[in-house]
Amino acid sequence: EIHIRTNGEEQARKVYKMLAKRNYDVKIEQHNGQWVVTAS
């Protein structure tokens, strides 16, 4: 499982799309105001 911390919604969405293209199961979560993308 991969966790990627991003500094904002826009970046989180870019990372989300990139990983989704590679057939990862991707989730975006917010932790303490930080956007974290989780891929498995």
Rank of each mutant, 00 (worst) to 15 (best):
T38M: 09
V15I: 15
N7H: 08
Q30S: 06
S40K: 14
G8M: 10
R22N: 09
E29N: 07
N32T: 03
T6N: 03
E10Y: 08
V26R: 01
A12F: 02
G8H: 13
N7I: 10
T38V: 14
Y16H: 07
A39F: 14
I28Q: 01
E10H: 08
H3P: 02
N32G: 09
K27M: 06
V36N: 03
I28P: 00
G8F: 14
E10T: 09
Q11A: 11
K21E: 14
N23E: 05
E29L: 08
K27I: 07
E1W: 14
G33T: 04
G8S: 15
K27V: 07
A20L: 15
H3G: 03
R22V: 06
V37R: 00
A12M: 03
R5K: 10
Y24H: 06
K21N: 09
K14T: 05
I28L: 08
A39T: 07
N32D: 10
R5C: 15
T38H: 08
W35F: 05
L19A: 02
Y24S: 05
M18A: 12
E9H: 07
A39D: 03
V15D: 02
S40T: 12
A20I: 13
H31K: 11
S40V: 11
S40N: 09
Q11K: 07
K27G: 04
V37F: 01
Q30C: 15
T6M: 11
Y16M: 13
V36F: 12
K14R: 12
W35M: 01
V26E: 00
A20Y: 06
T6F: 15
R13Y: 09
T6R: 04
R13P: 00
T6W: 04
R22I: 09
T38D: 01
E9M: 08
A39R: 04
N23D: 07
A12Y: 01
I4V: 07
I4E: 01
E29W: 13
T38N: 03
R22G: 08
Q11G: 05
E29V: 11
V26A: 05
E29P: 00
G33I: 01
M18L: 10
Q30F: 14
I28E: 00
Y24F: 11
T6I: 12
V15T: 03
E1A: 13
E29I: 12
I28M: 10
Q11P: 03
Q11V: 08
W35Q: 00
K21P: 02
A39L: 14
V37M: 01
K14F: 08
Q34S: 08
A12W: 03
I2R: 04
N7V: 08
E10S: 11
D25F: 12
Q11E: 13
N23P: 03
K17C: 15
Q11Y: 11
V15N: 02
Y24I: 07
A20P: 01
R13H: 05
L19V: 02
T6Y: 10
S40L: 10
M18Y: 14
Y24Q: 05
M18S: 09
G8K: 13
K21H: 09
T6G: 03
I28G: 00
K27D: 03
V36G: 03
E10K: 13
K27P: 00
K17N: 13
Q34N: 07
R13G: 02
Y16K: 07
G33Y: 03
A20W: 05
E9L: 15
Q30N: 11
A20F: 06
D25M: 13
T38R: 08
E9D: 03
R5F: 14
D25K: 14
N23R: 08
G33E: 05
A39H: 05
G33A: 04
E10A: 14
H31T: 09
I2A: 02
S40H: 10
V36K: 03
S40P: 06
A12N: 00
E9K: 09
E29A: 09
I28C: 15
K17W: 10
A39E: 02
L19T: 01
R22D: 07
I4F: 13
R5N: 05
A20N: 05
T38F: 07
E1F: 14
I4D: 01
G33D: 06
R5H: 12
A12H: 00
R22F: 14
I2H: 05
M18Q: 11
E29G: 06
I2E: 02
V37A: 00
V37Y: 00
V37L: 03
N23V: 04
L19H: 01
H3E: 12
V26G: 02
N7R: 11
N32I: 03
V15A: 05
A12D: 00
S40W: 11
N23K: 07
R13Q: 06
N32H: 07
V26K: 01
I2G: 02
T38L: 10
A20M: 13
H3D: 03
A39Y: 13
N7K: 09
V26L: 03
D25N: 14
E1H: 15
Y16R: 06
K14H: 06
K21Y: 06
V37Q: 00
N23W: 14
K17V: 11
I4R: 02
N7D: 10
R5A: 07
G8D: 15
V37E: 00
V37K: 00
G33V: 02
G8E: 12
H31V: 14
Q30L: 11
N32L: 06
T6K: 04
G8N: 15
T38I: 15
Q11I: 10
Q30W: 10
Y24A: 05
R22Q: 12
Q30D: 05
E29Y: 14
S40F: 10
V26Y: 01
Y24L: 09
K14N: 05
T38E: 03
H31Q: 11
R5S: 07
V37P: 00
A39V: 15
